[in-house]
Lab assay of single mutants.
Amino acid sequence: MQIFVKTLTGKTITLEVEPSDTIENVKAKIQDKEGIPPDQQRLIFAGKQLEDGRTLSDYNIQKESTSHLVLR
């Protein structure tokens, strides 16, 4: 499924993911596309910070959901 990640600069990154993917996996995909190390990434969805060990389905992130990327 596709999800979108919006950066603070207003850029939207499109990612191909599975509901069973962990947040860690998603951060690795963002690193592949954008070159941002996962330890600098914070992903926010529905006002919550997403934890590495959880999956997209844990957070009820469905296709075409948009989460926000904040850099630390």
Rank of each mutant, 00 (worst) to 15 (best):
D39C: 13
K27W: 03
I61P: 02
I13N: 01
V5P: 00
A46T: 05
L50E: 01
D52L: 04
E24I: 10
Q62T: 15
K48V: 15
A28K: 15
Q31A: 14
D58C: 03
I36K: 02
S20H: 12
Q2C: 09
H68R: 07
V5Y: 03
L69S: 02
E34N: 08
V17G: 02
Q40D: 09
K33A: 12
Q31V: 04
V26N: 00
F45Y: 13
I36F: 10
V26H: 00
K63Y: 10
I61A: 02
D32E: 14
K29F: 05
T22E: 02
L56C: 01
I23T: 04
P38L: 12
I13G: 01
D32N: 11
L71M: 08
V26F: 03
K29V: 04
E51Y: 07
L71C: 05
V70K: 06
I23F: 02
K11Q: 09
P38H: 10
E24A: 15
A46H: 14
A28C: 08
P38I: 15
K48C: 09
K6F: 09
P38S: 13
P19R: 06
S20V: 05
T66F: 10
P37V: 06
I13C: 02
D39H: 12
I30V: 05
T22R: 08
M1V: 06
I61V: 07
T7N: 05
D39K: 10
S57Y: 09
R54A: 08
T12Y: 11
S65M: 10
L56W: 03
S57E: 11
V26P: 00
R72Y: 15
Q40P: 02
R72G: 12
T55P: 05
L8V: 12
I36S: 04
V17Q: 01
T9D: 13
E34R: 04
K6C: 10
R54P: 03
E24C: 07
R72L: 15
P38W: 11
T12W: 13
V5C: 03
H68D: 07
I3C: 02
A46K: 15
I30Y: 02
V70Y: 14
P37W: 06
A28Y: 12
T14Q: 10
L50H: 01
T12G: 04
F4Y: 13
K6V: 14
H68G: 06
Q62H: 13
Q41L: 06
G10M: 04
Q49A: 11
S20M: 11
I30R: 00
R42G: 06
V5N: 01
Q2L: 14
I3R: 00
T66P: 08
R42Y: 13
Y59T: 02
G10Y: 04
I36C: 04
I61G: 01
P19E: 08
D52E: 08
N60W: 04
L8C: 15
E16A: 08
Q40W: 08
Y59V: 03
T66A: 10
I44C: 13
P38K: 14
T66Y: 09
D58A: 05
E18D: 12
R72N: 11
I3D: 00
E24H: 11
I30D: 00
Q49G: 05
T55E: 03
R54G: 05
K27P: 00
D21E: 09
L71E: 06
I30W: 01
M1D: 02
V26S: 00
G53S: 11
D58F: 14
K27M: 07
V26G: 00
R42W: 11
I13P: 00
